[in-house]
C-alpha cells in the first residue's frame, strides 16, 4: 500500500518539473522581450540569463529528485 502511495506521490512531485518549466520559459521569454527591445545590451546579459534559467530549473530538478526518491528510495 505504501509503495502505491509513494508512486502516486512521485507522480504529483513530477508535476513540479512542469511548473518549473513555466518558470524557465518565463525567464527566457522576458530575456527575449528585453533583448528585442535593446539588442545591443543582450549579449552582455546572456550570463545572467543562464544563471536565471539555472536557478529556475534547479527547483524543478528538486521536485524531480523528490519523485525519484519516492519511486526508488522510500
Amino acid at each position: 500500500m505504501e509503495g502505491q502511495l509513494a508512486h502516486i506521490g512521485a507522480g504529483i512531485a513530477a508535476l513540479g518539473t512542469g511548473i518549473a518549466a513555466i518558470g524557465v520559459g518565463n525567464v527566457a521569454a522576458s530575456f527575449l522581450g528585453g533583448a528585442l527591445r535593446n539588442p545591443s545590451a543582450a549579449a552582455a546579459q546572456t550570463a545572467t540569463l543562464f544563471i536565471g534559467i539555472a536557478f529556475a530549473e534547479a527547483l524543478g530538478i528538486f521536485s524531480f529528485l523528490v519523485a525519484l526518491l519516492l519511486m526508488f528510495a522510500v
Binding site: T17, A58, I61, F62, F64, L68
Partner: peptide, 10 residues
C-alpha cells in the same frame, strides 16, 4: 550540486 547531478540524471 543537485542541479548538476539532477539534470544529468534526469
Amino acid at each position: 550540486s543537485i542541479r548538476l547531478a539532477g539534470n544529468v540524471m534526469a
